[in-house]
């Protein structure tokens, strides 16, 4: 080949289309926003039934997780995510999907080494670094408060 790696990298970049940023942003904003609106409706409903804000928030989180699990189980969440992108990835529904999807996929390797071991293959890093970050934030807060 007469082309250098650097020139080839430029050629490959030139020929490879970028993700449709504006379209993705609009879809992510609307679907992510819609999920948050559903959460807010659940909170308001719970509060109107006499629950405290904290309890109502917990009910909203649990409800959204269950909704995501159901949609994932029926192979629908990934279809919405194709368009929604970060809109379905970032909210708590995305976290639930990231746990349930490998659990379903690796069930065929058994409940221990399959489902049990692989369930956190995608969500695991979020838990690890989420916990580490919150500990660090706690330490910083302790010294500056």
């Amino acid at each position: 080949m007469t082309i250098s790696n650097k020139d080839y990298s430029h050629l490959a970049d030139k020929k490879s289309p970028d993700s449709p940023m504006l379209k993705n942003l609009i879809f992510a904003f609307t679907t992510g926003g819609a999920i948050c609106v559903i959460g807010q409706i659940i909170i308001n409903l719970c509060k109107s039934k006499g629950l405290s804000f904290e309890d109502a928030s917990t009910v909203a989180s649990v409800s959204l997780v269950i909704l995501s699990v159901i949609l994932t189980s029926f192979n629908l969440y990934n279809k919405i995510a194709t368009f929604a992108g970060a809109g379905t990835l970032v909210p708590i529904t995305g976290f639930a999907n990231a746990v349930v999807a490998p659990a379903i996929e690796f069930r065929s390797e058994g409940y221990i080494m399959g489902l049990g071991a692989k369930m956190f293959v995608i969500a695991g890093p979020v838990i690890v670094y989420g916990t580490v970050s919150s500990v660090l934030a706690g330490i910083i807060y302790y010294f500056i408060k």
Binding site: S19, N75, A81, T82, A84, T88, G94, P102, I104
Partner: peptide, 17 residues
């Protein structure tokens, strides 16, 4: 998909390439 990428039910977005 299972071996090389992500579980089928996972909600990821594929790039145009």
């Amino acid at each position: 998909e299972k071996q090389f990428r992500a579980p089928l039910e996972y909600g990821g977005q594929r790039p145009p390439s």
